[in-house]
Design a protein around this nucleic acid. Structure first.
Length: 425
RNA sequence: GGAGAGAUGGCCGAGCAGGUCGAAGGCGCUCGCCUGCUAAGCGAGUAUACUGGGAAACCGGUAUCGAGGGUUCGAAUCCCUCUCUCUCCGCCA
């Protein structure tokens, strides 16, 4: 949520900045509703002040028959208050409903652009492997090795679900442990294992709701939603809390499965592991002091990159343009890993600074000084990394001419010292 | 799933035959005093949001005792619904 005062006082500037996202927002209606609300609020509150005063007078008189006329008068005042409160509630609801659907203001340093074509490549790392044979896409490698079973995944559930078997399952599990170990031990994040379903308030806090309900799976007998990313439960850990300044920055990491409907992506990535309804991810989340947030974003990005470096997988870092950023983000860097099967870089991590957008929605604050008013923290998060896509990158980059796949050295201790995956069938 | 108890400020905890209660008392914390040091003691202060005024310091109004609704001139206190927590029984990894 954007600061309502900012929208009130700088609506032209706000409209301009939002326009760079490709989001035409008209603040005129908002301004009207907002000022009507404030006028009415004042009126209702002065009526309440009157009622409070007179009620106190009544309480001091023993013989109520002496103040019967005041009681009668207050009866109608109360009636009026009730009517105004109802109208006020409606106005307020309209205003917050509107605010909740407005995306974050892009950071002024974010490159202006319309789509991913306008993203800016910042750096590249690693050697793109060259093959003496035609490299295969991971779904072929996985099926031939007997470690990925797409057909049975579809039988069990449906499209975009995959059964990992044997070394596939083990490799996925190894990657999760590998990533968590690095982030906890070397990068000093605190590991969390959150619920995989959350309530409406949590989804609203991080920005998935109310606007993106269509992207979420939910359960039918209670109003719980399956998390699309660990960002949701982890960021909401501190919802409605005032954190101690000394505790900032707070850094959490968590492995969770993620559930996404992927509505509107019907034709895309239909084969393989790239776009699944359920996938595993290790997430990094930080709660930071507003003055440090961009520095911390840089660190978080490096922490995510570190995983690819240790696995020796080539990647590049891209800065997203205003038109390609997510709803809640002010600034986003994507890490894209090289996939020889597609001869392309594909997103494997997205690291964002939300500034105070989520903190304001979720009520996550801190105090600058003992007596200072609480302020909103800045929240950050990034994938560290998407596990399934990391497995894809390993299969495609480490594939051998005989169909086997070498296991990156750093990962070998996590698979009992095994050096390569041969056919598991 | 069955039976019962509960939810009050940073924490503990009173109030609950409706009024002077944003809420006693204690603890914690902050500042000051006192004191060889420490401990103890004394005094003052110590919620949040919205809103009006003010350059600001600050001053005023409203709301908040789990959430929402109701009764009433007036609700932490009475009534209804919901959520959560705890205890016992059952079931279960």
């Amino acid at each position: 949520m954007i600061d309502i005062r900012y929208l009130r006082e700088n609506s032209a500037e706000a409209e301009e900045r939002l326009r760079t996202r490709g989001e035409g927002v008209d603040l005129q209606l908002f301004k009207e509703l907002d000022s009507r609300r404030r006028d009415m609020l004042q009126e209702a509150e002065s009526l309440k002040a009157l009622r409070n005063r007179v009620s106190e007078e009544i309480s001091k008189v023993k013989d109520k028959s002496l103040v019967q006329d005041k009681i009668t008068e207050m009866r109608s005042v109360s009636q009026r208050i009730k009517e105004m409160d109802e109208e006020l509630n409606q106005l307020e609801e309209k205003v917050t409903d509107f605010l909740m659907t407005i995306p974050n203001l892009p950071c002024i340093t974010a490159p202006i652009g319309r789509s991913e074509d306008d993203n800016v490549e910042l750096r590249k790392w690693g050697e793109i492997p060259s093959f003496t044979f035609q490299p295969k896409p991971h779904w072929e490698i996985g099926e031939e090795l007997g470690i990925l079973d797409f057909e049975r995944g579809a039988k069990l559930t449906g499209a975009r679900f995959t059964l990992y078997r044997d070394m596939g399952a083990r490799l996925e599990r190894a990657l999760i442990n590998f990533m968590l170990d690095i982030h906890t031990t070397d990068h000093k994040y605190t590991e969390m294992l959150p619920p995989f379903m959350v309530n409406r308030a949590s989804m609203t806090g991080t920005g998935q709701l109310p606007k993106f309900q269509d992207d979420l799976f939910s359960v039918s007998d209670v109003e719980y939603f399956l998390i699309p990313t660990a960002e949701v439960p982890i960021t909401n850990i501190h919802r409605d809390e005032i954190l101690r300044k000394e505790d900032l920055p707070i850094s959490y990491t968590a492995y969770t499965p993620c559930f996404r409907k992927e509505a509107g992506s019907y034709g895309k990535d239909t084969r393989g592991l790239i776009r699944q309804h359920q996938f595993n991810k290790v997430e990094l989340v930080k709660f930071v002091h507003p003055s440090d947030s961009y520095q911390e974003l840089g660190r978080l990005l490096e922490n995510a990159e570190e995983i690819l470096k240790r696995l020796n997988l080539p990647y590049r870092v891209v800065e997203l343009c205003t038109g390609d950023m997510g709803f809640s983000a002010a600034k986003t860097y994507d890490i894209e890993v090289w996939l020889p099967g597609q001869s392309a870089y594909r997103e494997i991590s997205s690291c964002s600074n939300f500034e105070d957008f989520q903190a304001r929605r979720a009520g996550i604050r801190f105090r600058e000084h003992e007596k200072a008013k609480p302020e909103f923290v800045h929240t950050l998060n990034g994938s560290g990394l998407a596990v399934g896509r990391t497995l894809v990158a390993i299969l495609e980059n480490y594939q051998q001419s005989d169909g086997s796949v070498l296991i990156p050295e750093a990962l070998q201790p996590y698979v009992g010292g095994m050096e390569k995956i041969s056919c598991c069938l």
